[in-house]
Simulated scan of single mutants.
Amino acid sequence: MSSTIKGRNFAVSGMFFMLGLCFGSLSSRMATIKGELSLSDGVFGSVLFAMSAGVVLSLPVSGWVIAKLGSKLVGVAAITLNAILLLLLPFASSVYQLAILLFMSGFSYSAVNVSNNTQASLSEAISGKTELPFFHGIWGLAGFVGAGLGALMVGQGISLSVHFGVITAVTLVSALTCWQFLHDRPGLEQSGRAFAIPDRSLFNYGLIVFCSMACEGIMYDWSVVYFQDVVSPDRKFVGVGFMVFMGAMTAGRLLLNRFVDRFGIKRTLQWSGMLTSIGMLVTIMHPSLVSSIIGFCLVGLGICTVIPLVAGAAAKSSSMAPSSAIASVLTIGFLGTLVGPPLIGFLSEAVGLRYAFIVCLVLAIGIIYRAGEIPEQSWGRK
């Protein structure tokens, strides 16, 4: 029995790893794709919005389909499609073809994401322990591997088609292997309604994820610019803040499962908001190299647990099927990634980038406040 559980957890980890590997590989070659089609910054930004639109529009659809067909089937089919789309991207010969492929890539990404979180919630239900942060840590680790391989491919002058061909082959073989071991529990996955308006509890979870993902989006898009323009270190240290932030997020997700089991998810989320707040205050009040590195590390450690913990809580909803509940929460959350980064740009024009980052402080306080609205008894673990 124990070996069976380990095999299923290994397969779930494999699905998270493949999703992160494809994501990191694509992100690492965006500049190459832009250059090969000779796209301006404005046009390329519009093309990237097509990918974001695919991610957001897919979420409610994915939740409904998974509730009907199961996360095992949808997850493996979607990661297969995502890998094939990666293989096709180097052959896009126009901005329209690229936009369509990226939209479909975002759409399939969300389907895998919801499927993976549903699978991980099944692992939690069986073990009675917190598992989701660890699985999300595997995604982050895979993203590092994908980005590192991408940098190596760029340095060696390896073409997009060869690079993405290797990643696609690895993903397809891995998906076939994982298929044999993934959870297949239709009775648990199809309980509750496949589609419904989120109740008050789910909406509150969604607001928590909105604050978290808006902050994450700001860090992804603006942290390097913040270091360059505000911290102003030696050129070789410009990217170190983002690396520390990502490293802290990954390490936190891999290591904090037992903390959550001991102190409960509600208290963990409140501490997450506090760490993020402190990290932002440190770097805003004293934006030197050392203090900003410490601040970005605290932000990464603070924000890392929010999405996996809330996804796990949503999967326990009594009003919706697990996949649909996860999708509804993530739909609200992903709106934060669309709002946060542009807001920083507007505020930076008015008050400067340093003080525009106060938005992250406000979002962190929002996490603390909304976590306080969660009933204690629904989150505590014994």
Rank of each mutant, 00 (worst) to 15 (best):
G165K: 13
M219S: 06
A196V: 04
S191Y: 01
R235F: 09
P133A: 02
P198I: 05
F227R: 09
S121D: 07
P233R: 09
D184E: 08
W222M: 04
I158N: 13
M219F: 11
A147I: 01
F227A: 09
T130P: 11
F164Y: 14
Y220A: 07
G146M: 08
Y205N: 03
L141S: 03
A194G: 10
H136D: 02
Q180I: 12
H183F: 15
G157Q: 02
V162D: 11
I126T: 09
G155I: 12
P133F: 04
Y220C: 05
F134A: 01
F237K: 08
G128Q: 07
V154L: 15
S191M: 04
M219C: 12
H163D: 08
L182P: 15
S121C: 10
L122P: 07
I208Q: 02
E189M: 04
W222S: 09
P133S: 01
A125T: 06
R200I: 08
G146I: 06
K129R: 15
V154H: 11
E131F: 08
N204D: 02
V173C: 13
C211V: 00
G143N: 03
F227T: 04
W179L: 13
V225A: 08
H183K: 01
V170F: 14
L202W: 14
V231W: 11
G137K: 00
G128K: 11
E216Y: 04
N204Y: 01
S201E: 05
V209S: 03
L188Q: 12
V225E: 04
V238M: 14
S127D: 04
S212K: 02
A142V: 00
V209W: 05
G148D: 00
Q190T: 01
S174D: 06
L172D: 05
Q156F: 10
C215Y: 03
A142M: 00
V166W: 05
D229H: 07
S223C: 11
A175M: 08
P233Q: 12
I126K: 14
L132A: 08
M219Q: 09
E124K: 00
V209T: 05
K236I: 09
A169G: 15
F195R: 15
I138Y: 00
Q228M: 11
C178P: 13
Q180V: 13
S161A: 12
V238R: 14
G217P: 12
L141P: 02
S212V: 02
S212I: 00
T177P: 14
P186T: 03
L152W: 12
M153A: 15
S174Q: 13
T130F: 04
V238D: 13
G206F: 06
I197Q: 14
F195W: 09
S123N: 05
W179V: 05
R185V: 11
V238F: 04
D234Q: 14
F135D: 00
V162G: 03
F227W: 02
T171M: 14
G128A: 01
H136S: 02
G155Q: 07
I138V: 13
G165M: 07
G143C: 02
G155W: 09
Q180S: 15
Q228H: 10
A214K: 12
I158W: 14
T177D: 10
F227N: 10
G150D: 07
L176T: 14
V154W: 08
S223D: 09
V231I: 10
V145K: 07
V170D: 13
I138D: 02
D199I: 07
S159A: 13
L182I: 04
L149Q: 13
